[in-house]
């Protein structure tokens, strides 16, 4: 799972460099994210602009990362493609996460 992390102010921006967060990738995604969020930024932004597909396992992994951050740190999302947006909407997770149109909107 190719993830690229960069600190920008109080924000840790993690760009997912892979097209799919699916059942075959979910565990690895979660494990890599666990390593990356060791960086003590109060906000973590997941840049999903390269992700064209996310299934229920991928969504479960994103939720697990949010829980990993605990109550004092926030996981935000940016640049959701149509399929990813649909999955968040139909499961109502779009109400749980702060979702930005573009990464620049979160800065």
């Amino acid at each position: 799972m190719d993830l690229e992390a960069e600190v920008r102010g109080d924000l840790l921006v993690v760009r997912v460099q892979q097209e799919r967060i699916d059942a075959a990738a979910a565990i690895e995604f979660k494990d890599r994210m666990r390593e990356l969020v060791d960086t003590p930024a109060p906000r973590v932004l997941l840049d999903l602009s390269r992700v064209t597909f996310l299934d229920s396992s991928g969504l479960g992994a994103v939720v697990a990362v949010m829980k990993l951050l605990g109550p004092d740190r926030r996981l935000e999302l940016a640049a959701l493609g149509p399929v990813v947006r649909k999955v968040f909407r139909l499961t109502r997770m779009d109400r749980v996460f702060t979702i930005h149109e573009r990464v620049s909107d979160a800065l």
């Binding site: 969504l59 479960g60 992994a61 939720v63 697990a64 949010m66 829980k67 909407r89 139909l90 109502r92 997770m93 109400r95 749980v96």
Partner: peptide, 17 residues
């Protein structure tokens, strides 16, 4: 899922959602 849902925003699922 077109309508607003009355569920509390905090209704986040536990392990793996």
């Amino acid at each position: 899922a077109p309508d607003p849902c009355p569920c509390p925003r905090s209704a986040i699922p536990p392990e793996s959602g």
